[in-house]
Design a protein around this nucleic acid. Structure first.
Lengths: 339, 339
DNA sequence: AAAAGGCGAGAAAACGTTTCCAAGGAAAGG
DNA sequence: CCTTTCCTTGGAAACGTTTTCTCGCCTTTT
């Protein structure tokens, strides 16, 4: 090491002072080494450190889309905790492509991240789940932690927002308001988040004895434009809806835009709900009734799980979800109520 | 290496087939190695690879806030390009704390990232700029690339959105609409982006002979709530404004909320403009007149710069900015026009 | 004063790869 | 059939750290 040479000591002692080792070094030598390091602007090579076994000081995070506020909120919290512990965050953004997910898992393992947080949503696909389980064995077998956010068909510790319960409560709100003809804009088929939210809504309707024929259910892409187009299709097919529940906020925004374009007032003619309570939900017009997901808290919890040693049993952190009622919902118009 | 042992070859040959080296290996041996690797779920250790000199296959990105749509848009583009080249992205999110910026630069250097993209905004602080320059010498001296996004007081290649020109055009639009009493919500003092945008607006007003007394200028934090509070202060002090220009979209959203609360109609009574054209700008009510910044393109360009070898001279990619006129602006009310 | 003990510093191994160098074998040419 | 050349493979060094082991010196104790 150059620093050692300049300070006139062995690399061993230089390392001892620079790495904050528990071994002792005399004050005189320590100072000389520090001075030499400062002079050379020495920055230890993290790869060499990682190689010799002291860990890589990095955490891997896998998301679907770094651009999506849902994930960035979680990511922000993870990043904050990581910075506090002097860790760096490696991200993989798979664009919802399962192959990319797997490929990122391998890349992150190649970098021997201390822990891996999978914030991407789970999907209902057996063969994929199996492949993922196998890839993640790389981590677990080497004593590394893997933490999921959301429900996955893969065994492991996880932070689990109660999508079902939140959606059920939201459905109950619509029912209580008096809606009986409710349309639902779902998300990509096989996402567990979509499934759970849909099931929650359906459950609430069933409990109230409200029918949900298939034509009132329309899949959309999890984006503003996806919601816009899905709402168009839904309205073309079932013009007499009094409420539209979109399975995320972005799609709800699109749905509101579609309604506005047709001159349908929200919430006077049609109520709209979202899911997630992303930051823009209360800024749009009308402010969106939705289900709040405490994303920062989930990120922090996931980090806590990731940085604590694995226990003998799987740990699950349940996150209850609350409905937040704003101005995009109201009782259905009198005409509809009478019907 | 375990794989070599299982395949019954030397580590050298195993490495040759697994690393896609240019050295030749007979087909028979290659197959045996591949089979052994698959059987053991072998994933090469990136740290060892990086150490021996073939680069770390990572790119570092420094942002102010992973949660801010401005940065995530850029980050998304960077991430996409990186994935295409089989690179992983290491992020540092400094929360606008210069010390953290520097600390991240060192951490990223410790990981010997191939290139560093500084997406955080520059600040007008001499001693900080000098310290940053010195820290970045670590990179440049070792032949690593550093690319800036936005104007920084540090020499280096950069992608430079024309904040000044965009703001000037925006100011000209307000002037053309007939506004003469314009308030400005600025951002954090020393951010170069803030300065440039402010200067652009001021320039446009000066050109039109429109006064801009200091009481019409109010600093705000670069957030929705910052804009909200700044608008409150501005309205308390100067109630007769006909337009408010916020230096970013988030603050404009806050300003609109403040106006709405006071029963002031936008744009009928007061026009509002933002800056950035983030995805929510056209979703809010009324859709926001703002300046479009092609963030994805900037991210891609930054990556291109970062991945191309350094040239003899500094390279600057100028990005022109366009005003997009939506419904948050209109001519001032007749009463004001008459005055 | 001598022995024992403790403390600080250096030598060297180890981490997992890549790559240079050398060697062995087969093919080709004389 | 022998020699030369090319092609494939193995050995070993190197990358930059940390850490274990060992050694020597100084201090303390008897």
């Amino acid at each position: 090491m150059d620093v050692a040479k300049l300070a006139g000591v062995s690399v061993a002692t230089a390392s001892r002072v620079l790495s904050g080792s528990r071994y002792k070094v005399s004050e005189r030598v320590r100072e000389r080494v520090l001075k030499a390091a400062a002079e050379l602007h020495y920055v230890p090579n993290a790869h060499a450190r990682a190689l010799v076994g002291s860990g890589s000081k990095t955490v891997g995070v896998l998301v679907h889309d770094v651009t999506n506020p849902y994930f960035t909120q979680v990511l922000g919290a993870i990043q904050r905790v990581a910075a506090e512990m002097n860790r760096l965050v490696l991200i993989g953004s798979s664009d919802r492509d399962p192959e990319r997910d797997l490929s990122f898992i391998h890349m992150l393992y190649a970098h021997r991240v201390e822990a891996l947080i999978i914030a991407a949503s789970g999907i209902d696909d057996l063969s994929f789940a199996q492949r993922m389980t196998r890839s993640l064995e790389l981590f677990t077998r080497s004593g590394r932690r893997v933490v999921f956010i959301n429900r996955h068909h893969v065994p492991g510790d996880c932070v689990l927002p109660d999508n079902f319960g939140g959606a059920r409560a939201l459905g109950q709100l619509l029912v209580k308001l008096g809606h009986r003809r409710i349309g639902i804009i779902t998300g990509p088929e096989r996402l567990t988040a979509t499934r759970d939210r849909f099931d929650g809504l359906r459950h609430a309707l069933e409990e109230a004895g409200i029918p949900l024929p298939p034509e009132r259910v329309e899949p959309g892409e999890f984006s503003r434009d996806g919601g816009y187009r899905a709402a168009q299709r839904l309205l073309d097919r079932v013009p007499d809806l009094t409420a539209i529940a979109a399975l995320n906020d972005l799609m709800a925004v699109g749905a509101i835009a579609a309604l506005r374009e047709r001159g349908i007032a929200v919430p006077r003619d049609v109520s709209v709900t979202g899911f997630g309570d992303l930051f823009f939900a209360r800024e749009i017009m009308p402010p969106l009734t939705t289900v709040h997901i405490p994303l920062e808290e989930m990120g922090v919890r996931a980090m806590k799980l990731a940085l604590s040693p694995a226990g003998p049993q799987i740990r699950v952190e349940h996150i209850p979800l609350e409905v937040v009622e704003r101005e995009s919902t109201a009782p259905p118009p009198a005409a509809a109520r009478g019907a």
